[in-house]
Structure formats: structure tokens, C-alpha cells
Amino acid sequence: MDIDTFLRQRGGAARTAALAKAGYSRTRLAKALEANQITRVRRGVYSLPDEGGVLGLALRHNARLTCLSAAPIYGLWALREAEVAHLSPGHKKTVPGTLTHGRLLHRVHPLLPVAGLADVLIHALHCLPEIEALVLVQTPLQQGDVTLDFLRRKLPGNRNARARAVLDYVIPRADSLLEVLANYHFRRAGLHVRRHVQVPGVGEVDFLIEECLVVETDGVTHLEPKQVKKDRARNNATVIGGLLCLRFGYADVVHHPERMVAQVLAVLEQSRRGAFNPC
């Protein structure tokens, strides 16, 4: 394998030890440097020219990426990209222009300068706003990479109460980020929510709220013509079956959750007042 491919598989940077283990001798590294194939970030660390990125930054400071900066490495959902690098430096010195997290307590990534998944999640639960932390921890908990009991044990005492509270909103299964967010907002509003309910004549719906209102959360695939026709038929079947139905898209759920919840509450209030009684 050429050195360019090797480094790209590791995010663009690697330590000398990793390169030597892969068979790249000092002579070979020297030739690659001379040919401008690679650059020396610092002693013992090499990267592709201008492609070390945050991984190169972590190697340069003998640190490891964690929290939001590690989310892409582990394929975790995130509402935004990290504006600055989240690092666990492994020493007391703070890396300028970065967010510093505590020391690592669990096994680290085997190839990259990245904290282990357990530490990434614990750091996120302490660092990020509640809803962003929830989104990030949902995927590994849902897939069984870690368990709720494990994280709760790692977050004891009053000082970790806020972090533990986030875990109360993790759901056993979410087919999309929108489901996680919508469920969070509906529950925060005090609504009785059931997820992934089988409705006769319709199939599985995302949410059944207060046993009378179906709510569907639509990602980008629901804008495709074939899916639009399918969704229209499901809406009609829902109403024919005696239930109300609302649909919300990405912008509604992510950017205007208060408006989404207000519309749900308005329909429920109309129902309580008898507005949808038979003609």
C-alpha cells in the first residue's frame, strides 16, 4: 500500500510507530518527505500535505479527539459540526483554540488519535446542550455498542445529574434523527406518546399522541414523488380509520420545535372541544 492511501485511511495523519509497524522505513519516509508526498507535523508525526485536519492537530499536541469532534469517526448523529476541536490532551496544558475535556478512562481508538467511544459519549453528556448530547448518544445506545446502565454507572452523584437526565430521553429505536428530536419535544411538553405504532389500514406510524393524533416526521426522502404519493395515501387511510394526522419536516422538527408542539397541542385542544365530532 502506498503511503498516501495509508494516511488517508487514518484521517490524513499518523505517528512514526504506526508507520513503522505498517512497513514504512525511515528511508522510505525520508523519500516521501523529499517528494512532498507527506509533511512532518512534529517530531514523530507525519501527515498528507495540508490534510492532517483535526486528527493532525490531535497528533501534533499528543492529544485525542473526543466529544463532538469524534462523532464523525464513530458515525454518530450530530446536529452540527464542531466549530473548534474537542480534545482530551492527556496532560494539564490546554491546546489554544480548542475545547479541553478530561482524561480518558477507557480503551482508545485502535488506529486514530481519538478517544474510545465510552469517553466520547461521557464527554458529550457533560459538554453539549441537552438535545445535542441526546442526539449524539442515541445511535450507539440503540445499536448496543454501550448500554444505558453502563453510562449511568459512569455518571454517579449530584454533579452528574444533568448528564444522567439526558439518558431518560433515549429511545429503544429511532429510524431518524427527527424521531429522536420530536420525541424529546413531545415528552417535554407532557404529552402521552407511543412510538412505532401499527395502525390498521395504514401500517407503522412514527408517533401516536394521546391515542388520537398520528404524527409523522418526514426526512428528505419524503420529498420524492413516489414517496409523496405513498404518504398522501397513508394520510387518507389514517383519517378514514378515525385518527387525526399531522406531518412535520426537517425544518419543523430541528429549527421550529416550539411551533411544531404548539400545532400538536392546538389539534388536541380542538379534539377535546369536540371540533372533530361526526357531522
Rank of each mutant, 00 (worst) to 15 (best):
Leu191Trp: 04
Ala189Pro: 00
Pro113Asp: 08
Asn160Asp: 11
Leu148Tyr: 00
Val120Leu: 08
Glu224Gln: 15
Val214Phe: 08
Leu112Arg: 10
Leu181Thr: 05
Val170Pro: 01
Val108Asp: 09
Phe186Gly: 10
Ile122Leu: 15
Pro172Val: 05
Leu111Ile: 08
His91Tyr: 07
Pro96Val: 10
Gln198Thr: 08
Val202Lys: 12
Thr100Ala: 14
Gly90Ala: 09
Leu111Tyr: 11
Asp119Ala: 05
Ile209Asn: 04
Tyr184Asn: 03
His91Asp: 09
Val114Thr: 13
Asp206Asn: 09
Leu104Val: 12
Arg103Met: 10
His192Lys: 13
His109Tyr: 02
Leu181Asp: 01
Gln142Tyr: 03
Arg188Asn: 14
Leu141His: 02
Ala161Gln: 15
Ser88Gly: 10
Leu148Cys: 04
Val197Lys: 01
Glu210Ile: 09
Leu112Asp: 04
Val114Arg: 01
Thr100Asn: 11
Gln143Leu: 15
Leu141Tyr: 02
Lys93Ser: 09
Gly116Asn: 07
Val166Phe: 04
Leu136Met: 15
Lys93Val: 13
Ile209Asp: 07
His101Arg: 09
Gly201Asp: 11
Gln143Asn: 14
Ala133Trp: 02
Leu141Lys: 03
Leu148Trp: 01
His196Cys: 03
Pro172Gln: 04
His101Leu: 12
His185Tyr: 15
His222Leu: 02
Thr217Asp: 06
Arg173Leu: 14
Leu105Cys: 10
Gly219Gln: 06
Ala163Gly: 04
Ala133Phe: 04
Asp218Ala: 10
Asp168Glu: 15
Asp175Gln: 11
Leu128Phe: 10
Phe150Met: 13
His123Lys: 10
Val180Ala: 03
Val215Leu: 13
Leu134Gln: 02
Pro200Asp: 04
His109Thr: 02
Gly90Asn: 07
His196Ala: 07
His196Leu: 05
Val180Ser: 05
Pro156Met: 11
Gln198Lys: 09
Val135Phe: 01
Ala189Thr: 07
Gly97Ala: 10
Asp119Leu: 03
Asp175Thr: 03
Pro113Cys: 08
Val114His: 00
Thr221Leu: 13
Thr221Ser: 11
Arg103Leu: 12
Ala163Asp: 03
Asn183Ala: 14
Leu167His: 05
His106Cys: 00
Ala165Gly: 07
Glu130Ala: 13
Val199Leu: 14
Leu111Val: 12
Val199Asp: 00
Val135Leu: 07
Asn158Ala: 15
Leu128Val: 10
Pro156Ala: 11
Asp168Ala: 12
Leu125Thr: 08
Ala161Val: 13
Asn183Phe: 11
Val193Met: 06
